[in-house]
């Protein structure tokens, strides 16, 4: 990445950088699918904000901002410490709804990388398709888009912000014990 200083200056991500961030996103969901949560936590910045708003269906003429208003109900409005609580729960040995384990597959697509005001931080857009299967034939799919902020730190990237926009209104699933 020796040539990136100039590229950042010109604010155009190189193919190499895009590839590196793509690989970071893929690695992240592989860790999640394999339940390697401690390693996943290491990809999260200390100042993480992990946000997924609730969805309210409103008419087009209604300009109420239901998506970014953090005083409203959100599926996730977490910092790293509360994400840690969720991970700790999985490690207690008594998270019954995860034993037998859920089978997960996250598909990540539509990745776009944009520079930000800060040279070490990049906005990364992506879509996700998360499939879950439990026990005999319980299954569901969760589809949505994400807007991330990733920060370069040494030879890796850390997730600083994630805004997850779910595409459902009523969650057609009895729980959301999954990271997206």
């Amino acid at each position: 990445m020796t040539s990136t200083i100039e590229d950042r200056a010109s604010r155009r991500p190189t193919l190499e950088l895009i590839k590196e961030l793509e690989q970071t996103l893929y690695r992240e969901v592989r860790l999640l699918d394999q339940e390697r949560h401690d390693e996943w936590m290491e990809m999260l910045a200390e100042d993480l904000h992990y946000h997924m708003p609730g969805i309210e269906t409103r008419y087009r003429r209604d300009k109420t901002d239901t998506l970014h208003d953090l005083s409203r109900m959100c599926y996730y409005n977490d910092d790293k410490s509360t994400i840690q609580l969720r991970v700790d729960r999985l490690k207690t040995g008594t998270a019954w709804s995860e034993d037998p384990p859920t089978r997960y597959a996250h598909l990540i697509t539509n990745i776009e990388v944009e520079p930000t005001e800060r040279p070490e931080e990049y906005t990364v857009y992506s879509n996700f398709y998360a499939y879950r299967s439990r026990n005999e034939r319980d299954e569901d799919t969760l589809v949505g888009s994400r807007e991330d902020l990733w920060r370069r730190e040494g030879d890796r990237f850390l997730l600083v912000k994630r805004f997850i926009l779910p595409k459902w209104s009523v969650l057609l699933s009895k729980n959301l014990n999954v990271f997206l």
Partner: peptide, 30 residues
């Protein structure tokens, strides 16, 4: 207002669909 926000965050953390407590109920009831 800041306490209302704190409560809202904590309710979702514990008893939202992804809540630390709520997520084990659905399996049983279904």
């Amino acid at each position: 207002e800041d306490l209302k926000r704190e409560i809202t965050k904590r309710v979702m953390l514990t008893f939202g669909p992804g809540g630390l407590f709520e997520m084990d109920d659905g399996e049983n009831w279904s």
